[in-house]
Amino acid sequence: MTNSTAISARDICLTFQTNDGPVHALKDVSLDIAPGEFVSFIGPSGCGKTTFLRVIADLEKPTSGSITVNGQDPETARKSRAYGYVFQHAGLFPWRSIAQNIKLPLEIMGYSKEEQEERSQAVLKLVDLEGFGGKFPWQLSGGMQQRASIARALSFDADILLMDEPFGALDEIVRDHLNEQLLALWRRTQKTIGFVTHSIPEAVYLSTKIVVMSPRPGRITDVIDSTLPAERPLEIRDTPEFIALSHRVRQGLRGGHDDLEL
């Protein structure tokens, strides 16, 4: 693929028709994401961050505007398995063991038995779950389940990883640990990551680019390029640079709300 953007959105609008009238989930959203970037979407509930991720994934159709994923329209991209999607909840199938869950996309995509085995072992290692392949989801903690679901999204080695508040339901200690692991994984695999969160420290810690969004109608209010180095120990969160970035994100979020009150 020779195109220089992984995801390119132009003037995306999306309106849901509800019983209480139309809801403008997205309005005039334009954004370019380069290959290998780690982009966080942050904003209060209803700002359209999840909806935008779902538009990229072809789980929602925009009302107007254009979007390309890997240079293709989202539907073609989805059908050519351009991305892995990690949902808010692990959503592992309880009738399948962890290894079988990870093989699920591979089975659907028609990989050979040997390759399924090989890849599931490799991604289990990647998320530090070696030896847990034979367990069933309900035998694992929430954090381990979410790691397994990340492994599932990684198993078919798509260039893009879309994550919708994957650590939202986990406690802070587990979350810190998983954030660290995710960064390491991103550096190793050089994937393009779209990451929805409503935690400012999480967004600043992880991203190369932070997209601040605000609600009613859902729109982008600020795009911040991170000045943090690629190598990020957890302690980086105490540096002045990190605090300054957090401050700017917080300003952006507040700005969105001020608009609302006018």
């Binding site: 789980l59 398995r81 991305y83 892995g84 999607y85 949902f87 959503g91 996309p105 659907i108 995509m109």
Partner: peptide
Amino acid sequence: TDKMQRDLIRTYGSSYWQ
């Protein structure tokens, strides 16, 4: 099945029968 599970299968580009 919940919506998330169906969405998940959809992201794999699976057919109705799959």
